[in-house]
Nucleic acid binder design. Sequence first.
RNA 1: GCCCUCGUAGCUCAGCUGGAUAGAGCGACGGACUUCUAAUCCGUUGGUCGCAGGUUCGAAUCCUGCCGGGGGCGCCA
Length: 553
Amino acid sequence: MTPQQISDAVVHVLEGLVTRGAVALAEVPGSVVVERPKVRSHGDYATNVALQLAKKAGMRPQELAGLLADALREVGGVADVQVAGPGFLNITVEAGAQGRVAAQVVAAGASYGRNEALAGRSVNVEFISANPTGPLHLGHTRWAAVGDALARVMEAAGASVTREFYVNDRGNQMDKFGASVEAAALGRPVPEDGYHGAYIHELAEQVVAARPDIVDLPDDERLVAFREEAYRLQLAEQQQQLEVFQTHFDVWFSERSLYGEGKVDHGLQVLDKQGHLYEADGALWMRTTDYGDDKDRVLRRSNGELTYFASDTAYYVDKRERGFDLCIYLLGADHHGYVGRLKAMAACAGDDPESNIEVLIGQLVKILRGGEEVRLSKRAGSIVTLGELVDLIGVDALRYTLSRYPVDSPLTLDVEEITRASAENPVYYVQYAHARLASILRNAADLDLAPAGDDFDPALLSHEREGDLLRALAEFPRVVASAAQLREPHRVARYLEETAGTFHRFYDACRVLPQGDEEPGDLHRARLLLVAATRIVLGNGLALLGVTAPERM
RNA sequence: GCCCUCGUAGCUCAGCUGGAUAGAGCGACGGACUUCUAAUCCGUUGGUCGCAGGUUCGAAUCCUGCCGGGGGCGCCA
């Protein structure tokens, strides 16, 4: 019996009581909260419906709970129901009903955990979106891990998801970047407001190596040539590193392309039709204050140049016209000032800022190195890059470390510690559980035993540790659904850690395979099925985080 | 000044969108391998959930105020 089935049963029973007139309720909720109690004596599952509905029904909570308990005891698969405390219902499930979860998991296989929470939604998830003026650093790496995991989780919840990287390849930062590389190549001092990292000199060397004639170009041509060559190299490096990091983008969207293809003009027209544009002081404005922004925003400056915000607007309109009904932006806390104007902009475009656009603000990552905080500055050149981090701790450990925390919690990572502690990373706890499971299944195969969901006695899985594990497995679809709905992929990681622990404790107490000359029995077969189900859940969960599930460790 | 965000064990952090006795890892101390992987398990240690009010059967969780850390408030990108 899964939590969902229990919830359905409670609703059904409640409807019955209302129909019989035993309970006076204007409205029966479509689902009720079914949770796993922390304390064993509170049963396998508990629900607080009676507490929630007592007032509306004009009854004392315990009275309503008593009626529900009597009716629920008659439900198939339910072993016992107790009323406890102020009116909780503590439900105990029959071992057989609970054990069948293992067969359900194995039958579903790789699709176990998938659900319909976001079915039918077409989502664009934009993340990282760094300037192509330097290597990706730890901050970007956090968004890479979290953004990709979020996309995976939302897909598992039934959404159609596109991962998108917006390349800010326009504007004066690009010129400063080009000028810095050029200066480095010519042996001149890099401009004060330019980029100063060692990577600038490496880029300069690469550019000159690829195009030796570049230094002889006329000044203005030379600057452009350096800028474009360095841009090409830097973007390629970002792309290559993200692929190594198992983060694949479906779309790399160049800001410049908005201009080349007239999309900015088109975007402005769309907004103009909605009536939120006006001219003042020689500039073109969007009246974002119509929708809660603190001030109106300039789209085209009085000198005729379009602002970055104009690009953003056109880009958003373009996304919507490409068919996405939800555009998610993952931004660092240093950009949270954009939230108001982005939402207002969506409203000005005629959309619903509550449903068409979401901005997830993530706290920045603080880095300690040698006990000192490393100030992340691309221009000063003090950065810890994605490439360095991958080399230090590996893709799996890095992805996992960054995606096991909620994005709105600030993260402090000590570079030495994260390197030294990589062996203690919780990811290995989960992966080790998976490898153990795989090992049992290999050993079973050597004994000609294979997990068979259609030939086992679920009631044999009655050990306390087996029950714990079955309930954990039954929880997985709810975890995936809530992670998707709340946009919190870290819930999957936390769930995996818990479930891995539950498995390790099961393993410690329950022998799965026959020993010595022992003949395989029904209990062996039942436990083997439970092992197969657990391996599927851990494997599916790790996949949602983009982390590998090793067969051996 | 205005806005956002965070404040939970010595450290890093969870806390299932209001539930029952607030958890995990690391650290410290002590146990468990002739048996399916000891990268594991078990026990001990450890808390005024920043502070003060409020909402209700019930608050770490929601509301208000204050204190403290971080961040944001350009016709910059």
